[in-house]
Design a protein around this nucleic acid. Sequence first.
DNA 1: TCTGGGGTCCTAGGACCC
DNA 2: TCTGGGGTCCTAGGACCC
Length: 406
Amino acid sequence: LTTDGRVCEHLFVTGDATILHADLDAFFAAVEQRDDPSLRGRPVIVGIGVVMCASYEARARGVRGAMGGSEARRLCPDAVFVAPRLSAYTEASKAVFEVFDDTTPFVEGISVDEAFLDVGGLRRIAGTPEEIAVRLRRDVRSRVGLPISVGVARTKFLAKVASAVSKPDGLMVVPPGDELAFLHPLPIERVWGIGAKTAAKLHARGIHRVSDIAAMPEDALVAMLGTGPGRHIHALAHNRDARPVRTGRRRRSIGSQRALGRSPRTAPALDAVLVGLVDRVTRRLRAARRVGRTVMLRLRFDDFTRATRSHTLDQPTADTSTILWIARGLLAASMPRIGRDGVTLVGLTIANLDDDGVVQLMLPFHHRGPVDGVLDDVKDKFGTAALTRAVLLGRDEGIEMPRLPD
DNA sequence: TCTGGGGTCCTAGGACCC
DNA sequence: TCTGGGGTCCTAGGACCC
């Protein structure tokens, strides 16, 4: 503890750089270039109305993600626009994560195209972190056909920064001892967690480099950004980041949204959009064998302000008619504001997720030894989702009474 | 073709409980 | 009459990320 009673954030300062951050380069565009040789070497933009992903050839001309299609075309008239093929990206992502899983048991997926890997303790069997990273990049290239950048450091934060700095198709190892020399000259935008708003606040006070942040007392940052962000940014600027690589993280919400564009905004039209969203979301819930308790309606208005309305049920569900009933109620409650401000986007998210009807395995207290035989039985009877849950229950939650399915 | 679609985490206030 | 001290859960909004 620090003198004022907070938990100190650099408990771990010893040790090697053993956290890898692996991040595919221009993922969607790279898949398109892989699958269509005529696109290689040319500026490729995935997305029609809006840029979802731009190849490095297009980025060199100033095209950025989330940019409007018209501006992208103006900057780069010879770009090839490609409609996204989400299933191809999902498949490529799975193949890459297989390579990750073959590298180390400690993989934490961050999104479809990036993950943290903890390779501490693998030195004897797999070599140094740098050797592992070299091999990982080679394997992803040969097995999946995609370029991937890797950062290696002692903290998640720095590994993430290093992979970004090394892009494209790069590898950067930040050895302990060189960390602040690497970090401090960087512009604050490089810090994972500083976005547009925070950067603007900092710039307004003449703060442009990470070293500027590091030179400030924590209190000053807290006064500027609030308690949570202030402390967080201050710690990161000193490379204090104790977050471990966490395996087995599960999705906490499932949602879908639709921008309305020029389509009519009448009540029946909005209801039709809502029905479509509910249908998509509940299908995805059931496919994932999850159920949820909180139904959240998300709205965006003409002036780009946003609002959310939510309702939490007593019992989790993935039932279409139940969720539609709740969603309609939330939409009805929002109609006054919609009439006033004009709606441009409708979204629906289900949160507070739980597993649906998954078997929980209770082992006797005295059970020690391997559980492989038991787990194999569970897998045969109930499938791999149940197996995951059983392992989770044993490792993280101890032994507890199973909650009976409804 | 002004601004897609999918997520995470944090905070603050209020209701409610013991 | 005024008011403790500990907690959970829900709702709404904001910032950030890919």
